[in-house]
Amino acid sequence: MAIVEATGIHKHFGALHVLKGVDLVVQEKELVFVIGPSGSGKSTLLRCLNRLEEPSGGAIIVDGVDMLSPRTDINKARQRIGMVFQSFNLYPHMTALGNVTLALRKVLGLPKAEAEKRGQAALDRVHLADRAGHFPGQLSGGQQQRVAIARAIALEPRVMLFDEPTSALDPELVGGVLEAMRELRQDGMTMVVVSHEMAFARAAADRVVFMADGAIVEQGTPDEVFGNPQHERTKAFIGQIGRH
């Protein structure tokens, strides 16, 4: 069953044509990995899926809900789509638990005790139960990103979007975040991940999508895309990151 069905997505920023008719279907429990050169439109695509960016054209169905219909309550729909950002975007004036419970209380309307129970459970899933009372400033970058993951999964989304979740981290902190993502995958979460962590992609991805110039150039299993790329652009890109 398809959780995400995006068809013919276009996005213009003024005269700039950033997405040129992208089709992306993500099946339940699938982990789709999106790679591509800088500026190819990976972030924009992700942000269109939960309508942080307004697509200029196309259709997006997430978990059976038409995201672009004016009759859709976008705030309700967004609960079903968790998002993790490159720069964490934790709320600096709230504790880790406060970050996680805010939407539980204000969007789901849970009572405080109930929200905190679920928030604690979410923090526990990223192994940060003991950091619930800490403010973002008191946490390492890796811990902050795991709190951000907990903030998203606490709402029990049907799909999680990750936009370069480890790019802002020191190398020694990357492992913890990837571990949390791997566990999430084992629990059956559907995920779309934009990242440069190729080793993680080989190990965990079901499908790799290569984007260039606002379009999907090539896709397939990790072995197909990394081991035997078909297009020139894909070859050049894989060759380039291989040399790093």
């Binding site: 939960n50 942080l52 967004r78 998002m83 950002f85 709320y91 939407a103 969007v107 709402l155």
Partner: peptide
Amino acid sequence: GQQEAARSTGL
């Protein structure tokens, strides 16, 4: 990013 994070959780 603060607003985006908040809106992405449905606020």
